[in-house]
Design a protein around this nucleic acid. Structure first.
Length: 284
DNA sequence: ATGGCTATGAGACATAGA
């Protein structure tokens, strides 16, 4: 809301005017333990003021999600917790996300909490935490590839709806050499293996737009720095967290980026938040 | 190649992360 002084009035009259929205800010943040990281998350929410947030690696069972603290900060949430590992959530500022599904179709045996989907502020949001897959090769790598196949299949059905959709989260993939501080060191890693990069490319080929890369072609941008070996101090980073936009949304990109400084905070996650701002959409 | 660090759940260390 914005106060407008009506001209000609004897006194300033406050008129409620719907402020022109600066746009819809959608962010993703692998928090690496939502309870251990709560102070960092709340401070970042206050500073960054995202409208929609996808969280990964909650590392908390369903009942330990800090719903009250987030509500006090102005966010409603849907989440899929899991004890110790994984866990994903979608936050929405000032409105209730409408949960559409949890878990990807294609394997009822898969009990990892790695995907949740909700309708939020007129956009369909798929929040994902793709398996790490190390060591490659092996059963974990196979699981990663199978999970990726299921994601690609579901992504195509989402696109077929024609709705404004975003696939947002920790993809555990560096898409190109530009996304790795030292590509030759990562050739055989599950995050950079050709099969995985090619799967990511297949996703883009369906018609998805990588918001951060599109806004910053040719630029070295990272979203993750290992806790080990002073990776943050050396800027030895990886770009793992991505925001993919359906064709309807890509023409509305205003800006995209990474809140790098958050990685330098006390008790930081090993990931930094990444975000995109979309201009006002007709449907919103 | 290894180990370095950090989280969780447990109440020591095992396991996963990337």
């Amino acid at each position: 809301m914005k106060a407008i002084a009506a001209t000609g009035s004897p006194e300033p009259v406050t008129v409620a005017v719907r402020q022109r929205s600066p746009g819809l800010k959608v962010a993703t943040f692998n928090v690496n333990g939502i309870n251990g990281r709560l102070s960092v998350l709340l401070l970042w929410l206050k500073q960054a003021q995202p409208d929609i947030v996808c969280l990964q690696e909650l590392k908390a069972p369903q009942y330990k999600f800090p719903v009250a603290a987030l509500r006090a900060a102005g966010y409603e949430a849907v989440w899929h917790g899991q004890s110790r590992w994984n866990g994903v959530a979608i936050l929405s500022r000032g409105s209730e996300p409408i949960e559409i599904r949890r878990g990807l179709p294609g394997n009822v045996e898969d009990e990892h909490s790695r995907y949740i989907e909700a309708a939020v502020k007129g956009v369909l949001i798929g929040c994902l935490y793709l398996p790490n897959g190390n060591p490659a090769s092996g059963p974990k790598f196979d699981y990663k590839l199978r999970w990726f196949r299921r994601l690609i299949g579901h992504a195509s059905t989402l696109l077929a709806t024609g709705a404004p959709v975003m696939l947002v989260g920790d993809f555990n993939v560096m898409p190109t050499e530009l996304d790795v501080y030292k590509p030759e060191r990562w050739i055989d890693d599950a995050l950079f293996r050709p099969e995985v990069r090619s799967a990511y490319q297949q996703l883009l080929d369906q018609g998805w737009t990588d918001a951060i890369r599109t806004c910053h072609p040719g630029e070295r941008i990272y979203t993750f720095w290992d806790y080990l070996r002073n990776a943050w101090g050396r800027d030895a980073g990886l770009r793992l967290d991505h925001l993919l936009l359906s064709p309807t949304l890509k023409d509305h990109i205003v800006a995209a980026g990474v809140d790098r400084e958050v990685r330098g905070w006390d008790r930081a996650s090993d990931h930094a938040p990444a975000w995109v701002i979309l201009s006002h959409l007709p449907s919103l």
